[in-house]
């Protein structure tokens, strides 16, 4: 189980005082569950990801998961090493015993033709796929996805979501997705955590999605989306008052 508990996270601002940007964020994900943090850009979602990934230790609270668990991440931009070819990029981060699995993933995500290229020669869509394969190839127990499909055309994003869903379910990966895209959150995650549009940000509503990673009936999907939009606008009116 992944347990996240962030009491406060502050950044030092200019006048020797600090500014709190996250507060009272508590949630957990059971093994194999997918959670989504849904909220607008610029409200500390990426900061929360960095905290969970262990990149930011300067916060009050704690993040716990079994010591043996491996963590993989897809950053908001593909973040491939521009000075190494695609195959080298993958080789460097993939453990030796996982290389075969990596080859299988390359096949699934249709990257075999591009292995000798350098990241600068790839389209954004391809680069994002490589970043995804890199994270999956280490056979992670926890997968962190920070807006993994942002600025891709919808059709491609959808294809990638379907492939990703299959791998997540097949390998039982506990996944946390950060996104501002409601459809993406609905398609992938069992539980949606709605981030408040306040500073400091916190989770103001949790919505369960029993139909995650299945072909959703359009009616059901629309209903769920309605519900999320209502929750988001309710929060906005609350703020306005």
């Amino acid at each position: 189980m992944l347990e996240v508990s962030v009491e406060t996270k502050s950044f030092a601002s200019d006048k020797n005082c600090s500014k709190s940007i996250l507060s009272s964020i508590h949630f957990y994900l059971k093994e194999g569950e997918v959670g989504a943090i849904l909220g607008p850009s610029g409200y500390g979602k990426t900061t929360l990801m960095r905290i969970i990934a262990g990149l930011d230790k300067d916060f009050i609270g704690n993040v716990t998961y079994p010591k043996s668990w491996r963590l993989g991440a897809v950053f908001q931009e593909p973040r491939l090493l521009p000075w190494r070819s695609i195959s080298d990029n993958l080789k460097i981060s993939t453990p030796h015993d996982q290389q075969e699995y990596c080859a299988k993933l390359l096949d699934i995500f249709g990257l075999n033709k591009h292995l000798d290229l350098f990241p600068g020669q790839l389209s954004l869509g391809l680069a994002r796929r490589v970043a995804l394969v890199r994270a999956l190839a280490i056979k992670p127990d926890i997968l962190l996805l920070d807006e993994p499909f942002v600025s891709l055309d919808e059709q491609l994003a959808q294809e990638l979501r379907i492939e990703l869903s299959r791998v997540i379910d097949a390998s039982n990966i506990t996944t946390l997705l950060v996104t501002h895209d409601i459809d993406e959150a609905i398609a992938l995650s069992d539980r949606l955590y709605l981030f408040s549009k306040t500073i400091p940000a916190s989770i103001h509503e949790v919505i369960d999605n029993p139909m995650a990673r299945h072909a959703l009936a359009p009616e059901a999907a629309r209903e769920l989306k309605e519900k999320i939009l209502t929750a988001l606008s309710k929060e906005q009116t609350k703020q306005a008052n």
């Binding site: 993989g72 991440a73 950053f75 090493l81 190494r84």
Partner: peptide
């Protein structure tokens, strides 16, 4: 890239080399 190396647990040598 430093963060990348941390998340993917690069060894010290790989960090230096790559």
């Amino acid at each position: 890239y430093e963060d990348l190396a941390t998340v993917f647990k690069f060894s010290a040598i790989n960090r230096l080399r790559h």
